[in-house]
Nucleic acid binder design. Structure first.
Lengths: 199, 199
DNA sequence: TATGCTGATGACAGCAACTGACATCAGTCC
DNA sequence: GGACTGATGTCAGTTGCTGTCATCAGCATA
């Protein structure tokens, strides 16, 4: 489990490659082993064979190391919405994009569980997760506006989409059966439709 | 305003009353004057005539001083949902509760604007605001479940309600005309209904 | 080959957020 | 009057985070 401190290897350049990835790995391990607050940045850096100062060159703060990967997801969603056929309704384009992202996550179910367990165990990490989701909602709304959707409708559709994703993701993580994330997302949309229709 | 440090007054007990309120006031002023990050806790405490250590006895961290009042709002909303007639649908009970809260905020429009300007100017404060809203959503979902609403429907209704509130509040803060918050909330619900219906 | 630039890292000092431990002392209860 | 309580002060310490300067492999270019 890579508790070992990595040292220079004279054969390959001045430094070990992928410093950023090593920091991410070390942080996820340590946060999982002893908790977020009980882990110091110095310890993460040491396990990655680097110094504390270098950690903060790669990540803005101690939390960000768990969320830096989210940029890819945002790109994916925005592109999916942009590429949807013109005839697609805003809510349908949004949900289709989320189903696509859900399919990706479906392939890394165990890692998602591990990461989410770390996040759920700490209030500061939950805060960071929420702002990432809010940023995502903003990006989705922007993508919708670029399709000609009005401001209000774009914001509400994006927020509703994120709400659906949150609820669906939580159920997916919690459930023991093997229902797949994209399917849960679709079911959640149907439920939201029923609920807003006044039921 | 009130840059003066408050001193003991031999006529009235050992300490000035309402230490907590003085800290809240001093913090809002300083955050507004020079920004959240540029304000130290020691400065807030000094303006309130107290010490840094005492600040942390009243508030868990430097941000919480802006959000401690939110507990009242949560109580109000939960009670409103609990007290709604049995025949009221979940979404209607939720929106009615939010309209009630909106009416309260309507009376302090300027203070709301001031507070929101401080929050919007800082990412850490936005994080804290989001987790407060998420907590509120949880509380709403709980209140709905106690009315016999199923888990999934309760979560989605609560999340949708909060999404509506976020969007409506933002428009209310931003707009120069005098449209009232409860009305904007109602309009936003109608828009969400249109959007989820597939439009 | 020499020279200089760049980019990732280390080393170190320092600030400010937050915590734990103990002291102080007005008011209150018995 | 003596014990107790509760809000506050004081002080030392940990840790997240930043600024600054030094180091040095690799690369380009003369």
């Amino acid at each position: 489990m890579s508790g070992a401190v990595i040292k220079y290897d004279l054969c390959m350049g001045r430094w070990q490659p992928n410093a950023r990835g090593r920091l991410e790995q070390a942080a996820l391990e340590l946060y999982g082993e002893r908790g977020f607050e009980q882990t110091t940045v110095a310890e993460i850096a040491k396990r990655a064979g680097l110094t504390e100062r270098t950690f903060f060159r790669h990540f803005a703060d101690k939390r960000e190391v768990l969320f830096a990967g989210g940029v890819m997801l945002e790109d994916l969603l925005v592109r999916a919405i942009a590429d949807a056929p013109d005839s697609t309704t805003p809510i349908e384009a949004t949900i289709a994009a989320l189903e696509g992202a859900g399919a990706l996550l479906q392939e890394r179910r165990e890692r998602s569980r591990q990461r989410q367990a770390v996040i759920d165990a700490n209030a500061e990490l939950r805060e960071r997760e929420l702002i990432k989701l809010a940023t995502l909602a903003s990006a989705l709304a922007g993508a919708l506006r670029r399709r000609g959707v009005t401001d209000l409708a774009a914001s509400l559709t994006a927020e509703a989409g994120i709400a659906i994703f949150k609820v669906a993701f939580e159920r997916w993580i919690k459930e023991t059966n093997e229902k797949e994330l994209p399917q849960i997302i679709r079911e959640s949309l149907d439920e939201l439709k029923a609920v807003t229709a006044g039921k």
